[in-house]
């Protein structure tokens, strides 16, 4: 094993992660969560058209490969006259994808809050929106942290697909080094190692958040 090459390529790969993978993941996840919340609310709104649209969206996102979604966004937007860089294309594709998956998580979490909580909110004079914001969503957040953390960790790894539309991120850096050095196995294992370390850090963060949100339930 060429240790010299290993150590020499570690920083470029990690840098690809810090400057590419992580910002791409965070931006896509943040936007995706907003989409997901709106889609979840549309699903439970009781307004038939909204609910049907939301169901259709979730069905398309879950029923098609992420790679295909990425390519559709990347090649289709320019055909509409929208010339955008690979990076925003990737953010749009990943956000839409997260939106579809997380919508179901958030919907289930909202529905898991007992009906009595809605009623208690109403009886202290709150409107539906205020009850949702102050009473229901904080409780739904606790329930949805574990599944949403899984979504986020999956997303971090899935952003490697963005290398295929030439976004500079962790895996793209690895590919460049591998092509240049012809040490495919070692470099890709090194990339795997860096992804794994990133995921470990995220899992630790997840359990911290869970602990904090669990302060008001019996153990």
């Amino acid at each position: 094993m060429d240790w010299e090459l290993f150590w020499a390529s570690l920083w470029p790969i990690v840098r690809g992660g810090l400057l590419g993978t992580i910002p791409l993941s965070i931006a896509s996840f943040a936007i995706g969560l907003v989409i997901a919340l709106l889609v979840a609310l549309a699903r439970i709104s009781g307004i038939r058209v909204l609910s049907a649209l939301a169901r259709f969206y979730v069905s398309v996102i879950r029923g098609t490969p992420l790679l295909v979604q990425l390519f559709v966004i990347f090649y289709w937007l320019p055909s509409l006259g929208l010339l955008i860089d690979p990076w925003p294309s990737a953010v749009i594709a990943f956000s839409l994808n997260v939106g579809g998956y997380a919508a179901e998580v958030i919907r289930a979490a909202i529905l898991s809050v007992p009906k009595g909580q809605w009623e208690a909110g109403h009886t202290i004079g709150m409107s539906r929106t205020t009850t949702l914001r102050r009473i229901i969503l904080p409780q739904a957040a606790r329930v949805s942290v574990p599944p949403l953390s899984n979504t986020f960790i999956s997303l971090v790894k899935d952003t490697s697909l963005a290398s295929l539309i030439l976004v500079t991120e962790l895996f793209r850096e690895a590919q460049k080094i591998a092509a240049f050095s012809q040490e495919f196995v070692m470099i890709y294992m090194e990339a795997a190692l860096v992804y794994w370390v990133f995921s470990l850090v995220l899992s630790t963060a997840q359990s911290r958040i869970e602990k904090r949100l669990d302060r008001y339930v019996a153990h």
Partner: peptide, 14 residues
């Protein structure tokens, strides 16, 4: 009016 519930319905996160 204000209501007192059989199952209390306190807000568990507060």
């Amino acid at each position: 009016s204000a209501m007192v519930f059989q199952h209390y319905n306190l807000f568990p996160h507060l």
